[in-house]
């Protein structure tokens, strides 16, 4: 199958600052492709390069089998995007906004009814003719998506689509993405700084940090049970760490952290581990299994230690 997006060795420098560093990844037809990274990791810069808003310093971008640099218009005709905040013309109505962008999106000319359908799909039909400045954040987000979809693109790029939304809004967007993927067979590239949000819907994930790829792969593979991290908190961590070093679990111990002891093991080993702890009479305050991916994410978002989590 032809990849929808194929990025090779992509880099972007802003003067001295390296925003994206030698990044390569592939998005296939039908993927909901999760693009993860903390704020400032280079997600937005990468997405903007995909959408020709930023010119890459190095590297190649191919989309739909064409080079972006030479077939910009053809590619953008098949792409719809919401980049960061869904900003539209606030002094125009939702209908006027959709109509305006439909004219230059490269799709067929839409009738008034079709444009209203587009707004109905995101639940804005009743407020179609109110000025956008009267809209809530969630409504604007949905309008942004309606505009991104107005020309029925193959690829939908959503940059942090749930930013600033309430839980209901987040759920709405998530359902919309699933709908678009399953019912309409769209390819979706969605970025986020929250793993929890993406892991539920994305079939593939790319994680970047400081502009570099940290991991890429199937969500299921990345959440490999053999790579479960167990976080242990005891009354006396020092003593417990020493005891574990002497036990058969020593090989699984991870570098010491401030308040917890971390071991990497298969999820199925947890009951046995639990028994060992009891036998060693280690007083447990808490024992939390966590996927290594999740752990990595917690680490980078809380920003403490450097982890070498992804060696698989």
């Amino acid at each position: 199958m032809q990849p929808v997006i194929k990025v090779s060795n992509l880099s972007k420098h802003f003067n001295e600052i390296v925003a994206v560093n030698n990044l390569s990844f592939t998005v296939n037809q039908g993927d909901i492709y999760g693009f993860l990274g903390q704020n400032g990791a280079g997600k937005s810069t990468t997405i903007r390069m995909l959408l020709t808003l930023i010119e890459p310093s190095h590297g190649e971008i191919e989309m739909f089998g064409m080079h972006l640099s030479t077939h910009r218009k053809e590619i953008l005709r098949q792409t719809g995007a919401v980049i960061e905040k869904p900003d539209v013309y606030k002094y125009l109505s939702a209908f006027e906004n959709v109509q305006l962008f439909s004219k230059i999106s490269g799709g067929p000319k839409l009738t008034r009814a079709q444009l209203l359908d587009q707004l109905a799909m995101v639940g804005l039909q009743e407020r179609a003719f109110s000025k956008v400045k009267t809209y809530s954040q969630g409504m604007k987000q949905r309008l942004g998506i309606a505009i991104a979809l107005v020309h029925n693109p193959q690829l939908i790029v959503l940059d942090e689509p749930t930013n600033g939304l309430d839980p209901q809004g987040i759920a709405d967007i998530r359902n919309l993405m699933l709908h678009l993927s399953k019912e309409r067979n769209k390819t979706i590239l969605v970025s986020s700084h929250l793993l929890s949000e993406i892991q539920l819907i994305a079939n593939r994930l790319l994680i970047i940090d400081k502009g570099k790829k940290m991991a890429e792969g199937d969500t299921l593979a990345l959440f490999d049970p053999s790579q479960t991290l167990v976080e242990l908190e005891t009354l006396d961590n020092k003593k417990a760490f020493y005891q574990l070093q002497q036990s058969r679990w020593s090989a699984k111990l991870q570098p010491a952290r401030e308040k917890t002891i971390v071991l990497k093991m298969d999820k199925n080993e947890i009951p046995a581990f639990h028994q060992s702890l009891a036998q060693m009479q280690i007083p447990i305050l808490s024992l939390q299994p966590r996927n290594s991916l999740e752990d990595y994410f917690l680490q980078v978002t809380t920003g403490n230690q450097h982890v070498e989590a992804f060696t698989n």
Partner: peptide, 14 residues
């Protein structure tokens, strides 16, 4: 400022 420039420029127009 409004943020519409980036939307406009991701459309298939040069």
């Amino acid at each position: 400022n409004m943020g519409t420039l980036r939307l406009l420029l991701t459309k298939p127009v040069s």
